[in-house]
Amino acid sequence: MNIGERVKHLREERGWSQKELAQKMKINNSVLNRIENNKRVLTDSEIIILAKLFQISTDDLLGLEPKQRIKEENKLYDITINKEELHLLKDYLDFIRYKKKN
């Protein structure tokens, strides 16, 4: 899903029309239409405004890897890791569990 599709999806999830979201963003409705159709790139400030309006992180808005929760000794750490790092971490944990059994 590209950024325009994500904006449209988040807008529709909240039941907002393009006009309503455009007003909240303080931009013209036609500008929002172009954003949702990927004919216009979001500015940095628009990304921040949208993240605040949708109450999500800018990473989530941009479609970056979701935060993974890692539990260590009853403590939760919020970290962002990519898929390759996640696979390496799982392999490492499997190895540690195997070593503890043997």
Rank of each mutant, 00 (worst) to 15 (best):
N2W: 09
N2Y: 12
N2Q: 08
N2K: 08
I3D: 11
I3P: 06
G4F: 03
R6A: 01
R6V: 01
V7A: 03
H9D: 14
H9E: 15
R11S: 00
R11M: 00
E12P: 03
R14G: 02
G15T: 08
G15A: 09
W16M: 12
Q18Y: 12
K19G: 10
K19V: 12
L21N: 07
A22T: 00
A22M: 05
A22P: 04
A22C: 04
A22K: 02
Q23H: 13
K24W: 05
K24T: 02
K24E: 04
M25S: 00
M25W: 06
I27E: 03
I27M: 00
I27S: 02
I27A: 00
N28K: 06
N28W: 08
N29Y: 10
V31M: 11
V31R: 11
N33V: 08
N33K: 14
R34Y: 14
E36C: 05
N37P: 07
N38P: 02
K39H: 13
R40C: 09
R40Q: 15
R40V: 06
V41W: 12
L42M: 09
D44W: 12
D44Q: 12
D44G: 08
S45Q: 15
E46N: 03
E46S: 01
I47F: 05
I48E: 14
I49F: 08
L50W: 01
L50H: 01
L50G: 00
A51N: 03
A51E: 01
A51R: 03
A51D: 00
A51F: 03
L53T: 05
L53W: 10
F54T: 06
Q55M: 12
I56R: 10
I56W: 13
S57P: 04
S57T: 12
D59C: 07
D59M: 05
G63Y: 10
L64M: 13
L64V: 06
E65P: 02
P66Y: 13
P66R: 15
K67Y: 15
K67D: 15
Q68C: 14
R69T: 14
I70E: 05
I70K: 04
I70C: 02
K71R: 14
K71S: 12
E72P: 01
E73P: 00
E73A: 01
K75C: 06
K75R: 15
L76H: 12
L76D: 14
L76Q: 09
Y77D: 07
T80Q: 13
N82P: 02
N82G: 04
N82S: 03
E84H: 00
L86E: 11
L86Q: 11
L88D: 05
L88T: 01
L88C: 00
L88Y: 10
L89V: 01
L89I: 00
L89S: 01
K90G: 01
L93S: 09
D94C: 06
F95R: 10
F95C: 06
F95M: 09
R97Y: 13
R97D: 15
R97H: 14
R97S: 13
Y98G: 11
Y98K: 15
K100E: 15
K101H: 14
K101Q: 14
